[in-house]
Amino acid sequence: MKLPVEITPNPLLSSRVEIRYVLNIQPDEVVGAFYSQFKDVFPILRETKVSKDPGIADELMKFAPDFLMSNDKYAIAFNGNAISFENMGDYQLWGNYFPFIRTQLSTLIEMKIVRSIQRISVRYVSLFEKQLTKESTFIKIPQFNLEGYKENLNLYRTSFNPSNDPNVLLKVQIVKNARASTANEFRIGTLIDIDACREFSDIDLDDNIFEIVDNLHAEEKRLFFSMLDNAFLQTLNPKYDRI
């Protein structure tokens, strides 16, 4: 299946590549270590405002970033348990985004503060401002087909393992009437959230980490476009030849 490199208008809300790790430095040394290495590329440093509400699951809070460093195109968010890479503003396309990630991960490797990797994930969240339906938009979404009832898609959640790599887990959510606030506007529509990840008992940063990130992106992208009906895809003005 030939996959587009770009669709317009771009429905992407967020794109995040996250590395969960074990560090060999103390928690109070983290911000200083990262700032000294990344400040020339990311001159803006701020503390995030993530709620520390004890009612939120500890496992989720463990990986919520404490600090964010950014420039006009990209950002890194981090704490003592994870680092993530994000676009700031317009999506830069994977041909630009991946070299950026590779460069920053190389810097992280050179810092020699990461003892091991626990999880790598590539997560893309898109919002289509028209309400999508399983009949005209998606293919192969299960339905009950109960006599005397009409089924409406409000929330669909599932997961997949690619047949060519069962170690990869792709977690999918489709949410109808989702609401999202961006820097400039408030949007409502159908949300598609795909999180492609691999977990590890222990790997080093040198163990094909760049290849793993690139492969997770490829699996996430393949699944996203495989879910869409071809007639609907054509309404998104797909481009196949841009690098």
Rank of each mutant, 00 (worst) to 15 (best):
S136W: 01
V168I: 10
Y35K: 15
K221A: 05
P142S: 09
N152W: 03
I120Q: 06
G89V: 12
K62W: 01
F100H: 05
P54W: 08
N96F: 12
P166E: 02
E86G: 06
V168Y: 04
T8E: 13
T103Y: 01
F34N: 07
S15P: 08
T235P: 02
G32E: 15
R187H: 14
T103L: 00
Y156V: 04
E59T: 05
S121Q: 10
R102N: 05
D165T: 06
R46C: 00
M61G: 08
F34W: 07
L233I: 12
K150D: 15
P27A: 15
E29N: 15
S136E: 08
G189D: 12
S51P: 03
D90Q: 10
K62G: 05
I44D: 11
P65N: 11
A57H: 14
L68R: 14
A82D: 04
K130H: 12
T107I: 00
M111V: 00
L13P: 11
E135V: 05
I203T: 04
R16I: 08
Q143E: 14
N96Q: 13
K239Q: 11
I192Y: 14
Y35P: 02
K171N: 04
A218C: 07
N24H: 07
Q173W: 09
G55D: 12
K73S: 13
F160K: 08
Q104E: 13
E86R: 10
S36W: 00
E185C: 03
S14M: 08
S36T: 06
G189R: 09
I243Y: 06
D207C: 05
V5F: 13
V122C: 02
K73P: 06
L132Y: 03
S116D: 04
R20C: 06
L105P: 00
R123S: 01
A196E: 05
R102H: 09
S126A: 14
T182H: 11
I56M: 10
Q131W: 05
E6T: 09
R198H: 09
K130T: 13
S15H: 14
K39A: 14
R115N: 03
T158V: 09
T137Q: 06
L169I: 04
I56S: 11
E147K: 15
S84I: 05
L132K: 00
K134S: 01
N96D: 10
I243S: 04
T190H: 13
A231W: 09
E220N: 11
I212G: 07
N164C: 06
K239F: 08
L170C: 03
P238T: 15
L169M: 02
A33V: 02
K239D: 08
N167T: 05
N230Y: 14
I192A: 10
R157D: 03
E185R: 06
I212M: 02
F138T: 10
F85P: 02
I44C: 03
I209D: 06
N145V: 04
Y74S: 03
R16C: 08
P65Q: 07
R115K: 11
A75Q: 09
E211T: 07
A183S: 11
A75N: 03
L191D: 09
